[in-house]
Design a binder for these strands. Structure first.
Ligand SMILES: Nc1nc2c(ncn2[C@H]2C[C@H](O)[C@@H](COP(=O)(O)OP(=O)(O)OP(=O)(O)O)O2)c(=O)[nH]1
Ligand SMILES: [Mg+2]
Ligand SMILES: [Mg+2]
Ligand SMILES: [Zn+2]
Length: 579
DNA sequence: GCCGTTTTCGGCCCGACTGTTTTCAGTCG
């Protein structure tokens, strides 16, 4: 998959064109194409080979030619020429908050600045404040911007952002007179990483609310402070945006502030075609200028003849078209989840006993929980030998004989060895009602090797679920080199389910891949927390959110089934493959 | 640079905050 790489190149061309002062819609075309390719579930090189690039809306004659050239030669002539005029280094400067293409162009052409060090030097010598359109304050603002970008740690994990947002919301509730409040932006859409925390509120006194906000104890710096919108930076380097509107506009504002940007643009374009105008204050008829709604978020979609679209779907990935046809799927909900099929106990590297895990799971209202400890191939995680599995079995039987509130399933997270065999013999696997298998070592192997390993694992009749299929760790480790399309084919052929691991830094399979697995290959998925302690069981919420972002329904997720149905489904494979 | 159940040319969302500005451009959400 070279999608990210190609998207990156297109994005760079877009920014360079913007600095050059090109037509902004031409710039937009590059940005939009980049986004489309980044979110495309198939490999861009495959599309190019098959001559299908132009089937992506937003990629036409010019862009497809450039993309093909890049994939073939590793270069784009047009870009080579462009960088002679606009150095590539300048792109980094546009990443400074408050510094855009116009300022970069100006400091480059007037002062010859191409990097942050030179910019800092120029600021120290107060060279910027004498440039037309800039002054003392702009210079200071840019200096602060450089501070921010230097300390910036990139996008946060959703799992880290959620509690922080909750803390801010609670503080605002306690210290201001709030009518309504909600998180918005990527956080409400439950995107796997979060750029900043967006909060929307309606209140009796907007000014007081803003005062309270910018005086939060966590505030390091005030980025903007207006009557309806303020932004602050916390000591941890997290930006928080607060938008305040009247109660009667809360719905329209929530729609706006939830985004995504691309969803908003598409929605607003469609509205225009139908004679309406949408902004964060409401939806208006263009002919008479009358406001037609906006108190509730549903107003906006309903007036346009659409179903209300769940926030997780608002990525301009076909949801607007589906909502118009009233064909949105009924997304899986946390309440549908009947059990967790991947948790560890202190028999391996878990921190709590089977009993504690079972009690906690029962508390969550689950019907069943599968204890899937590591197996012997993973010694660092105290993986279980066949003998230990026998021992553990007694404890599980004992629990089930004495407790009706939840059924504990005996399971394993077996290790896929570097030759693709499972680290436990079939005689052991056949005894286990739940068999998950995953790659934990040799993640850096070449494509061919990973593919072969997985093929072998998928073909093992006892392996029901592949855990964390790509092995990626967000912001830390890339997915393995395994070919996802091939992996999906194996899963389809062998009716093996794939896990959507809910650990905040895994979320693996990820949303767009899970959607592809389900839509194109009819693969079933399992949302699991991979808990090593009881608190982590709550991560189910994150995993289900990713499933919702993958457009999945209850029927697509095996751990929404009741116990009998689940076991029947999971055991079909061994019944079919062993005659 | 892309696109088209009204278009193959003329559109391509809409508004807040900041700083520098005598009326608005730049940046960002
Ligand atoms: N209509 C419109 N809405 C926008 C635009 N930019 C941002 N928004 C809305 C939708 C976004 O989800 C919301 C919050 O903006 P953010 O920049 O914080 O983006 P978002 O939270 O989606 O992603 P993030 O994780 O913060 O990078 O504001 C825009 O250009 N037009
Ligand atoms: Mg945001
Ligand atoms: Mg924001
Ligand atoms: Zn694992």
């Amino acid at each position: 998959m070279r999608n990210i790489e190609v998207a990156q190149i297109l994005r760079e061309i877009g920014i360079l064109l913007e600095i050059k002062g090109e037509n902004r819609f031409r710039v937009l075309a590059y940005q939009e194409a980049a986004r489309k390719i980044e979110n495309w579930p198939e490999a861009v090189e495959t599309l190019a080979e098959e001559g299908k690039l132009r089937e992506i809306s937003g990629i036409g004659e010019g862009l497809s030619t450039k993309i093909e050239e890049y994939l073939r030669t590793g270069k784009i002539d047009f870009l080579e020429e462009l960088t002679k005029e606009i150095p590539r280094e300048l792109i980094r400067l546009t990443e400074i908050p408050g510094v855009g293409p116009k300022i970069v162009r100006q400091i480059y052409s007037e002062l010859g600045i191409v990097n942050i060090e030179q910019l800092e030097q120029a600021i120290q010598e107060h060279l910027l404040q004498n440039l037309p359109g800039l002054g003392i304050k702009s210079e200071e603002k840019i200096r602060k911007g450089i501070d921010i970008i230097k300390k910036s740690t990139g996008r946060m994990l959703l799992g880290d952002a959620l509690p922080l947002a909750e803390e801010v919301v609670i503080f605002l509730r306690e210290n201001t007179q709030i009518k309504k409040i909600s998180t918005a932006g990527s956080l409400r859409r439950m995107k796997e990483t979060i750029g900043d925390i967006d909060i929307l509120a309606s209140t009796v006194d907007a000014n007081r609310m803003m005062e309270a906000f910018i005086n939060l104890p966590m505030v390091k710096q005030i980025i903007a402070h207006g009557t309806t919108k303020s932004s602050i930076l916390t000591y941890e380097g997290v930006q928080i945006d607060l938008r305040v509107v009247d109660n009667q506009s809360f719905g329209a504002a929530l729609q706006y502030f939830t985004g995504s940007k691309e969803h908003n643009v598409k929605l607003r374009e469609y509205a225009l075609k139908k004679g309406y105008k949408i902004n964060e204050y409401g939806i208006y008829r263009i002919d008479d200028g009358e406001r037609r709604g906006g108190e509730k978020e549903e107003d906006i979609y309903q007036i346009l003849g659409m179903e209300w679209i769940p926030p997780e779907m608002r990525e301009d990935q076909g949801e607007i078209e589906a909502a118009l046809q009233k064909r949105l799927p009924i997304l899986v909900d946390v309440k549908d989840i009947q059990g967790d099929l991947h948790v560890h106990s202190d028999w391996s590297d878990g921190l709590v006993s089977i009993e504690e895990m079972a009690k906690a799971a029962a508390q969550k209202g689950y019907q069943y929980i599968a204890i899937c400890d590591h197996s012997q191939g993973l010694a660092v995680a105290s993986g279980l030998t066949p003998e230990q599995i026998q021992q553990r079995k007694k404890e599980i039987i004992h629990w089930n004989n004495n407790h009706a509130e939840i059924f504990v399933l005996e399971g394993i997270e077996a290790n896929i060895l570097s030759d693709g065999t499972i680290d436990l013999p079939d005689e052991v696997l056949v005894q286990l009602p739940i068999v998950v298998a995953g790659i934990h070592t040799g993640l850096g192997q070449a494509t061919e090797k990973i593919n072969q390993r997985l093929e072998k694992a998928f073909k093992n009749p006892y392996v029901q679920i592949i855990s964390h299929p790509t092995g990626r760790l967000i912001n830390k480790r890339d997915a393995t080199q395994g070919d996802l399309a091939l992996l999906f084919k194996y899963a389809q052929q062998t009716t093996t389910a794939l896990e959507m691991n809910a650990q905040p830094e895994r979320l693996d399979l990820k949303d767009i891949d899970a959607r592809q697995a389900s839509e194109k290959y009819q693969i079933k998925l399992v949302v699991s927390t991979d808990s090593h302690d009881t608190l982590s069981l709550n991560l189910m919420r994150l995993g289900v959110a990713q499933a919702r972002r993958a457009w999945l329904t209850k029927n697509d997720i095996l751990n929404t089934y009741d116990k009998d149905q689940l076991l029947q489904t999971l055991h079909k494979k061994r019944d079919r493959l062993i005659i």
